[in-house]
Design a protein around this nucleic acid. Sequence first.
DNA 1: CGTAGATTTGAACGTCCTCAAGTCGAGTGG
DNA 2: CCACTCGACTTGAGGACGTTCAAATCTACG
Lengths: 246, 246
Amino acid sequence: MDTASGPTRMPTLEAACTNCTLRDICLPHGLTRAELESLDHRLVATRRKLLRGAALFQAGDRFESVYAVWTGFFKTTIASPDGRTQVTGFQLGGELLGMDGIASRRHELDAIALEDSQVCVIPFDLLQSLALEIPSLQTQLLRLISRDLVRHQQAMLQLGSMYAEERLAAFLVDLTKRLHARGFSESALLLRMTREEIGSYLGLTLETVSRTFSKFQADGLLFVRNRQIRITDPVGMRHIVEGATH
Amino acid sequence: MDTASGPTRMPTLEAACTNCTLRDICLPHGLTRAELESLDHRLVATRRKLLRGAALFQAGDRFESVYAVWTGFFKTTIASPDGRTQVTGFQLGGELLGMDGIASRRHELDAIALEDSQVCVIPFDLLQSLALEIPSLQTQLLRLISRDLVRHQQAMLQLGSMYAEERLAAFLVDLTKRLHARGFSESALLLRMTREEIGSYLGLTLETVSRTFSKFQADGLLFVRNRQIRITDPVGMRHIVEGATH
DNA sequence: CGTAGATTTGAACGTCCTCAAGTCGAGTGG
DNA sequence: CCACTCGACTTGAGGACGTTCAAATCTACG
């Protein structure tokens, strides 16, 4: 088998967008057939495998590529000079990673695989060149960054003005929504992250996350069994997001 | 005088990047002389004046343009379905506004002028076309969005894992840094926002912001008089950001 | 010079954190 | 197959930071 990181060596494992199932939610969204083929022909993106716990990139690394999650699940974390860290996002199939490095040409975040994963490695200079030639590619690249921009601002709203229950409910609703868009169940999900990582993302301690899960279960909103979640009252869940209590 | 919103009508007031003092920190950064002139020739950006309190755009508005702050000062706010709002950023000269609308073609934020301001209106489709022809323009556009992306994640870190004093200190340090890059003093600043707006950005109440200013003054870190701030101990200030207490 | 909004300050309360102990579960080696 | 171990998780109790509510002061501006 392959080791934790490093691109795979087999030339046949080059990434091809044309036949990728994630095509329409990923970078090639909106491209014509011809453009897609041009992309595959010119981009020569490679795949990289990561074992659970491995870093796709780390803060301070030279920025050379962005990455599209092909399989698996990632978290990004940011650190302050004094060593505090915070999870800033979770990424799943079809989502882009690494755009934090565009401005400074160095990555500002760590990206860690939360399960064995594979990403498409997209050299950024090459992507930029192609985006000059394929207008829809430029558009889609900007769209994906813009979506991230909004997502982080929604996260700020949660962190700044919501109670623990509201934050966790919002987190679960958002995650199931994104999973559902990828063909998974709307009501059942398997968390790939620890309580501590959820807490870090939500600005809470792991104990508060745990207690809140227990309370949701006691209130009949969901079933928790370790990292298995089944949402039994999605309406009540959304009510909590919208501040039904308090 | 002009009214609160609406583009100015005078054709001679068209924006010209070539002679703009903000040229090198704004969108045209990195462009050659020839590209700059091409930009001015083709972009035909207009200026728009806004009185204090006026909205440059609001959540739900059709997205058609991005805006470069030319003079003045803005805030952006995001709202949740149930009506809670949070300030997600403050923008000053040379910074871009409106990129929140790229993904959904509708603005997701409100942008409000905090003092009488002027912005360059940049039709987005036109900008995209030009970015196809001027590689440095595409690069710079992506850079500016990426910088915002990182900035919001740093804000998440503050909101999620810092004490009130640390948040306010970090806010002041960041703001003075940005003002200094624009030729203003490193130690004296005039806040253009209320305590409530600062609090909203930092996930605190206005009372906590006020108390923390008072404490900073009592500790000899700065002088506050209304919205006039003078930082007397910048080193101590940075110490607080880095979690010197607690 | 009066009024409305912004700010300051105090006091009591509440949500979430910290600290602590115990339980559970997956992976490992005997 | 089972005991062992380490990390993840749960739950409880007490305390802290920041909020809420309240009142007074200040400021800008008509």
